Amino acid sequence: MFTGIIEEVAEVVELTRENNNLHLSIKAKFTPELRIDQSIAHNGVCLTVVSLDEARYTVTAIKETLSKTNLDQLKKGSTINLERGMKLGDRMDGHIVQGHVDQTAICIAVEEAGGSWNFTFEYDPELENVTIEKGSITVNGVSLTVVNSAKNKFSVSIIPYTYEHTTFKTLKTGDLVNLEFDVIGKYVKRISEFR
């Protein structure tokens, strides 16, 4: 489990393909604290540490993950939002995030708003995911509040701290992002389908 509060923006230092898998090696400040088998959210995607040394660690994304996320678009030198798994008993400053990306979206607008930024995203409505006004959404692993909710698009407002401490500072119109919709909303939607 995660909270959507980004711990570090790190660099992808190596990408290796093996059959349908993609091994990502990441240089992160917290690498010396890691161990094999730990879960880390990478742009909101929960992946398991499979190897590490003092300077970097490696995770593997399989075909299923690559087909539903933006990880396949990463290149050597790309930056990525990272969050380690939640510790039991910690404060939960974001919202409940599983690290299971539901689908991707395209950034269709970026507007500077006098010290903050508004980002608008459009996603495929065929998967029937929904947002609600003032509800929670995870964009590339960042816990955010929805504004301007519509059938297949929504906006988020980004404060300067979040802008500077996540990959939002490099996000531009046309970029693909990972979305994880609010888990409580997903359960409510599913239950209502059976009534």
Results as ranks from 00 to 15, higher is better:
125 P>I: 13
170 T>Y: 14
147 V>G: 05
45 V>A: 10
98 Q>H: 09
36 I>Y: 07
171 L>M: 14
134 K>H: 12
6 I>M: 06
60 T>S: 15
194 F>C: 05
103 Q>W: 06
159 I>Q: 06
175 D>H: 13
151 K>N: 09
62 I>K: 06
56 R>A: 13
160 P>G: 02
16 T>V: 15
150 A>M: 12
128 E>D: 04
163 Y>T: 12
57 Y>S: 03
23 H>Y: 15
194 F>W: 14
16 T>D: 08
136 S>H: 02
191 I>Y: 14
24 L>R: 07
128 E>T: 00
94 G>F: 13
63 K>N: 10
184 I>M: 11
151 K>R: 09
154 F>A: 07
153 K>V: 00
65 T>Y: 04
30 F>N: 08
107 C>D: 08
189 K>R: 12
139 V>P: 08
76 K>D: 10
111 E>A: 02
177 V>P: 03
179 L>P: 00
193 E>T: 05
51 S>D: 11
21 N>T: 02
164 E>R: 15
174 G>M: 11
179 L>W: 01
180 E>A: 05
11 E>T: 13
152 N>W: 06
33 E>V: 08
173 T>F: 07
71 L>H: 05
50 V>Q: 07
43 N>Q: 12
164 E>P: 10
15 L>C: 02
155 S>Q: 08
81 N>F: 07
113 A>W: 10
182 D>T: 00
53 D>N: 15
158 I>N: 01
192 S>Q: 15
43 N>S: 09
170 T>R: 10
185 G>D: 04
75 K>G: 00
39 S>R: 00
60 T>K: 15
167 T>V: 12
42 H>R: 02
114 G>D: 10
22 L>Y: 03
117 W>F: 08
111 E>W: 02
158 I>T: 04
4 G>H: 03
167 T>L: 10
141 G>R: 02
49 V>F: 03
79 T>E: 13
151 K>W: 04
190 R>L: 13
179 L>E: 00
137 I>Y: 07
89 G>K: 09
47 L>W: 14
176 L>W: 12
139 V>Q: 11
86 M>K: 13
173 T>K: 15
83 E>G: 03
47 L>C: 10
135 G>Y: 03
191 I>A: 14
168 F>P: 01
86 M>V: 15
138 T>C: 09
77 G>T: 04
47 L>D: 10
170 T>N: 14
14 E>C: 01
195 R>L: 14
10 A>P: 01
146 V>P: 00
143 S>E: 03
146 V>F: 01
152 N>F: 07
122 E>N: 12
7 E>G: 00
101 V>K: 02
143 S>W: 07
59 V>E: 10
175 D>L: 08
167 T>K: 08
43 N>E: 09
165 H>L: 13
29 K>T: 13
81 N>D: 08
55 A>Y: 15
20 N>Y: 11
100 H>L: 06
155 S>F: 05
21 N>M: 05
156 V>G: 04
50 V>E: 08
8 E>N: 04
177 V>L: 04
49 V>K: 01
163 Y>Q: 13
62 I>W: 08
191 I>N: 13
41 A>W: 06
40 I>K: 01
94 G>R: 12
42 H>F: 11
122 E>R: 14
120 T>K: 15
73 Q>R: 15
164 E>I: 11
67 S>Y: 14
21 N>L: 06
8 E>C: 04
